[in-house]
């Protein structure tokens, strides 16, 4: 754990609950991004993120100082999302389409291309099975190492690598028909070959 996090955790354990705000500020985007891409619904992702931080707060006493704080909180996020998806499946609630476009980049043309690419890749990720989606997000969007992902998902490293490769293959297969239809994704790919 980084020094500042250690200090904050110690302060909270001594009764200074407001110090927890520093932890929330540092990790809210990582947790929210992960939750959002597991449920693809903004309000649900926000509720889940709140649940993650509240659970982490209540479990601070059990936090193992040998583990990176980011790994620990993402493990809680992963468990919370999986529980939620399981409950949602039991209730048979439909997945809501909630894809949001990214921040607008420079020119209008680039903005269009960027937006299209983001939309396509996000849609392809959304169609992945949960376990693969989680892995892809942790590795690419959250920049976690194989080792950290193995700790978060409680899986051996070889399984992490295999699932990551398989997840990418599935994604590529999802994107193949789009590319064949001649989307901007194809244009960009062709330009780079």
């Amino acid at each position: 754990m980084e020094g500042w996090e250690k200090d904050v955790v110690n302060r909270i354990l001594q009764g200074d609950a407001h110090s927890y705000e520093e932890i929330i500020t540092a990790y809210k985007n990582a947790v929210f991004s992960l939750c959002y891409r597991m449920v693809y619904q903004k309000q649900e992702a926000e509720d889940l993120s709140q649940e993650v931080f509240l659970k982490a707060y209540r479990s601070l006493g059990k936090y193992d100082r040998g583990m990176k704080f980011s790994t620990w909180i993402l493990t809680i996020a992963r468990n919370t999302c999986i529980d939620y998806l399981r409950r949602r499946k039991e209730k048979n609630l439909p997945l809501e389409e909630g894809l949001k476009a990214g921040e607008a980049p420079i020119s209008a043309e680039e903005a269009y291309l960027y937006k299209e690419q983001q939309r396509e890749i996000e849609a392809a990720i959304e169609r992945l099975p949960g376990e693969y989606r989680l892995l892809i997000i942790l590795y690419h969007q959250q920049s976690r190492s194989y080792k950290e992902i193995a700790a978060i998902l409680d899986l051996p490293m070889t399984i992490v690598k295999n699932r990551l490769y398989r997840g990418r293959k599935m994604l590529k297969e999802e994107l193949d028909p789009i590319r064949k239809e001649g989307s901007p994704w194809t244009a960009e790919a062709v330009k780079n070959i």
Binding site: K28, N29, S33, I137, H140, L171
Partner: peptide
Amino acid sequence: MKEQLDGLEVLSP
């Protein structure tokens, strides 16, 4: 595809 994935937007609540 990797570039696209690495560039996935960081979202904020």
